[in-house]
Simulated scan of single mutants.
Amino acid sequence: MLNDKDLMKNPFMTNEKFAQQFDFLKEEGEFDRILKILTVPSRSGIYLSRFDIRNIGLTLGVDVPVRERREMLKDLFYYSKQIDKMKEFLDLLIQYTNSKINQYRELQEAFPKTSQIIQGWIDKAEKLISFIENLKREIDIYKAV
């Protein structure tokens, strides 16, 4: 098994190649990437507050303890998988994102001079929706295996 020092000695072994050797690292890396996309507004186009995450959890029937947003989302992913409500959870994220897009569009109408800036956020949020839709398709694929 390679450790970090061995990886640093070989500059041609990228993190992706390293992760391919160990399935559990690949999954963890992908999951961390998903959490980062959801918690960084400059990537997702939306801001999920602790309150929002907690409300999504309550809608699923899960009372998520309030703490760091990333940890709360991680808990929601685990809980929704355990109670077999992952698709519902992802649908709730899509609904939330759509509501934010609608708010952005209202702002565009109210403040036309900011339209270009707001459109950038809308574009990111729409990409987030397609990303979440892909996650839903992957869930179906993994269930079929």
Rank of each mutant, 00 (worst) to 15 (best):
I37E: 01
S44F: 05
A110P: 03
F77M: 08
V40P: 12
P65L: 02
S130V: 07
N3A: 02
K9S: 11
V64A: 13
P11N: 03
G61Y: 04
Q116T: 12
I94Y: 00
P41E: 00
D140I: 01
N134L: 10
L76I: 11
R69W: 05
D32G: 10
F18K: 07
G29S: 06
P11M: 00
I53S: 04
T97M: 04
K143V: 09
L73A: 12
G45W: 01
K26P: 09
V40Q: 12
F31H: 15
N10K: 07
I34W: 04
Y79W: 11
Y78I: 14
Q116P: 13
M1G: 15
F12H: 10
Q82A: 12
I141F: 08
L7W: 01
D91Q: 10
E28A: 14
K136T: 09
P65Q: 03
S130N: 09
G61A: 04
T59H: 08
D84G: 06
N134H: 11
R69T: 15
F24H: 07
N3P: 10
F89W: 04
A19Q: 11
E109Q: 12
K87N: 14
E27D: 01
L135T: 00
M13K: 09
E126W: 00
D123S: 12
K100S: 13
I129V: 15
M86C: 05
E71H: 12
V66C: 11
D75E: 14
S44W: 02
D123Q: 09
K36V: 03
L92S: 05
R137A: 13
I94M: 08
I141H: 11
F77T: 05
A110C: 05
E27S: 07
G61V: 01
P112N: 03
